[in-house]
Amino acid sequence: MSKEFGQRLLNQLRKQNITQKQLADRVNTTEATLSRYVSGDREPKADMLANIATALNTTSDYLLGIEQKDFDFPKVERLLARNSATMSEKQKRALISALFEED
């Protein structure tokens, strides 16, 4: 994870014009801890990784380098709109539950 994760995290911060301090506050950690993630000296646990991805409107897979492209909300929105007619009621309920379920 280390260097690639740190670089992707830094890129997202710059892209969204967010400071490390602002992100640290959003995900309930310290700026020092976040700085260690950026430098590659420390790796976030799964729950922190998910919180960071959510706060940056991206995916943990993108931050980890598993996905090469950043999260694209308009693309996802178009995909859902295009396919909603073919989704079963059970699938629609599962999607709504995933979107609005409290953590």
Rank of each mutant, 00 (worst) to 15 (best):
S2G: 15
F5R: 07
F5M: 11
G6N: 02
Q7C: 04
R8P: 02
R8G: 05
L10C: 06
N11T: 08
Q12C: 14
Q12I: 03
Q12L: 10
Q12N: 10
R14T: 15
R14G: 12
R14V: 15
K15I: 12
K15L: 15
Q16V: 02
Q16P: 06
N17G: 14
N17A: 14
I18Y: 06
T19F: 04
T19G: 12
Q20K: 08
Q20P: 05
Q20F: 04
K21V: 11
Q22C: 07
D25S: 07
D25N: 12
D25E: 14
R26N: 04
R26I: 02
V27T: 01
N28P: 03
T29A: 03
T29W: 00
T29C: 06
T29L: 02
E31A: 10
E31R: 12
A32R: 12
A32E: 10
T33F: 02
L34Q: 01
L34R: 02
S35Y: 02
R36D: 14
R36K: 14
Y37E: 06
S39R: 07
S39D: 09
G40E: 13
D41L: 06
R42A: 12
R42G: 09
E43I: 09
E43V: 11
E43M: 12
E43L: 10
P44S: 01
P44M: 01
K45S: 05
K45N: 08
A46D: 06
D47H: 05
M48C: 08
L49W: 00
A50F: 00
A50N: 07
A50V: 04
A53L: 04
T54L: 09
T54S: 10
T54P: 00
A55Q: 01
A55D: 01
A55Y: 00
L56G: 06
L56D: 07
N57A: 06
T58P: 08
S60H: 05
D61W: 03
Y62C: 12
L63W: 03
L63E: 04
L63Q: 05
L63G: 02
L64V: 00
L64W: 03
G65C: 09
G65M: 08
I66M: 08
E67M: 08
E67T: 13
Q68W: 05
K69A: 15
F71A: 10
F71T: 07
D72M: 00
D72E: 07
D72R: 00
F73K: 09
F73W: 13
P74E: 09
P74D: 09
P74N: 09
P74C: 05
K75M: 08
V76I: 14
E77Q: 14
R78M: 10
L79V: 03
L80N: 06
L80D: 07
A81R: 13
A81G: 07
A81F: 11
N83V: 11
N83M: 11
S84N: 12
S84G: 09
A85L: 08
M87K: 04
M87V: 04
K90R: 11
R93K: 15
A94S: 09
A94L: 11
A94M: 05
L95E: 09
I96F: 14
I96G: 10
S97Y: 14
A98R: 12
A98F: 09
A98L: 13
L99H: 02
E102D: 14
E102G: 10
D103P: 13
